[in-house]
Amino acid sequence: MAEPALVEPFRNAATIAEIRSCMNNLFDIFAEVKRQVKGENNRLAESELPRLWILSFTASESIIRWF
């Protein structure tokens, strides 16, 4: 089954600032989806919101701990 997703690929290791930017993009998409659904007077299940996938060649221990 297909699910909505936001995919953010990185050629090099993603920094915390870049990951934060990806998260901001996801929250912008959440807000837009919620506005669309509200205008249609429908409800949106949490499972219908897109998931964020950050693809990075590597990640440092500090970034992994940050999450």
Rank of each mutant, 00 (worst) to 15 (best):
K38F: 07
R35S: 14
Q36C: 06
I16F: 02
K38H: 04
L26C: 05
V37A: 11
S60V: 03
M1F: 10
V33H: 04
T58K: 12
P9H: 04
A2E: 12
F57Q: 13
A31M: 01
W53M: 07
R43M: 08
N25W: 05
N41Y: 09
W53A: 09
A31C: 00
P50M: 02
M23W: 06
N12R: 13
N25F: 00
I16P: 10
N42Q: 15
E61C: 00
P9V: 03
S47E: 09
M23Y: 08
E40Q: 15
R11N: 08
W66N: 12
V33K: 09
Q36Y: 01
T58M: 00
V37K: 08
E48P: 03
E61H: 13
A14Q: 02
V37Y: 05
E32H: 10
A17I: 02
V33R: 10
V7R: 04
E32R: 11
L6C: 03
I16S: 12
W66Q: 12
A59Q: 14
E3A: 11
K38R: 14
C22V: 06
N41R: 13
I64H: 06
Q36A: 10
R11V: 12
T15M: 02
A31F: 01
A31Q: 10
R20A: 12
W53D: 06
R20F: 01
I16A: 13
A14H: 03
C22F: 01
L52G: 07
E8M: 04
A2T: 12
S47Y: 01
A45Q: 11
Q36K: 15
S21H: 13
S60P: 11
R65T: 14
S47F: 01
A31R: 09
R65K: 15
G39S: 13
N41K: 15
G39T: 05
N25D: 13
N24C: 08
I29F: 03
A17E: 15
S56W: 01
N25V: 00
Q36D: 11
R65M: 08
L52P: 06
A59I: 09
T15E: 03
N41D: 13
N12K: 12
V7N: 06
G39P: 00
F10D: 07
F30H: 12
L26E: 02
F10Q: 11
R35M: 09
S47M: 08
F30M: 00
L44N: 06
C22H: 02
E61T: 14
M23N: 11
V37G: 03
S60N: 05
R35W: 00
L26D: 04
A14P: 06
F27C: 04
M23Q: 14
K38I: 04
F10M: 06
L55S: 09
K38D: 14
N24V: 12
W66P: 01
S47G: 07
N41I: 04
M1I: 10
P4V: 00
Q36E: 15
T58C: 05
E46W: 07
A59H: 10
V7I: 15
I29N: 05
K34P: 00
E8I: 03
F67C: 11
E3T: 12
L44M: 07
S56V: 07
